[in-house]
Amino acid sequence: METKHEAYYVPEQSKLPLWASISLFLTVFGLANLFNSISAHKKAMLADSSLAPLGMFGHDGIYFVICGFIMFCFVLYTWFGQAIDENIRGLNSAQLKRSYVWGMGWFIFSEVMFFSAFFGALWYLRNISFPHLADASTNDILYNGNIEVEWPPAQTPDQIVNGDSASFVAPDKGMGWAGWGHVAKWLPFWNTVILLTSSVTVHIAHVALLKNNKKTFNLWLGITVALGIIFLGFQAFEYYEAVHHYGIKLHSGAYGFTFFMLTGFHGMHVFMGTFMLLVQWLRSVTKGHFTHDDCFGFEASSWYWHFVDVVWLGLFIFVYILG
């Protein structure tokens, strides 16, 4: 068997990586200034004294963030545009395309590990820390036996010790499974349906593309994007409910922050995924990109979408049903 190697396209030098680094730096440097000054401000208000110093740039950090973020978006737009252009000009050999495939695959793996840290934290807090607090000796000595193992906890340890002056106040009730009778009004159920459906629709789009049926492809990809947007709308409504009717906040103890951090990071990923699919849809509709054997941009976005779907299933089980 003969294996012939194609020449591999090594790009000319490029200004993009340096500008990407600069804009990334501006963004995080600004965020750090902003967060520090907000927190210092809050502390000073609580102490009811004159305002504490606000750090190097203080609230002006926001300008760094805006500047850096806009630059970053522009860099990415140019960068992806260039990569697409190179592909259209036929510079990308089959071997180079495999590099992109490996790149996307390992990127998704890194995202899986990021979520694992938060799932792991939820598991540890519920199954190790919390029972430990409720353990007879700890419970009796520190909390007069008031800690009870239940999820969501009725009160935080802070409340048991400090009563009304506690800063961590447990939620009124959780977002979890409320029995079959409530399924129809239970948003997480509908969001699960939406997201699972969207994984199917994106697959239908893919199959259509493989048959070079661009009309069907555009239709089903468009439906997928719409489902992503609906999901995000439902989640926004769910957050509103959680904060205003259930009393769930970032500072309402272990239940509150695990709920918001896990679903929040997932929501951000759904946003990213929807945006990526939307870009692919626009490319297909307005520029006629993608053929059955050349559609990496779409395929990579769809893998990402399936990954986001799988994470949601984890959330549905561990945050909602078991919550």
Partner: peptide, 13 residues
Amino acid sequence: HFGTSFFDAAGGG
């Protein structure tokens, strides 16, 4: 900065 208590026992962390 945002009031969570991952590592603070007072909030169940």
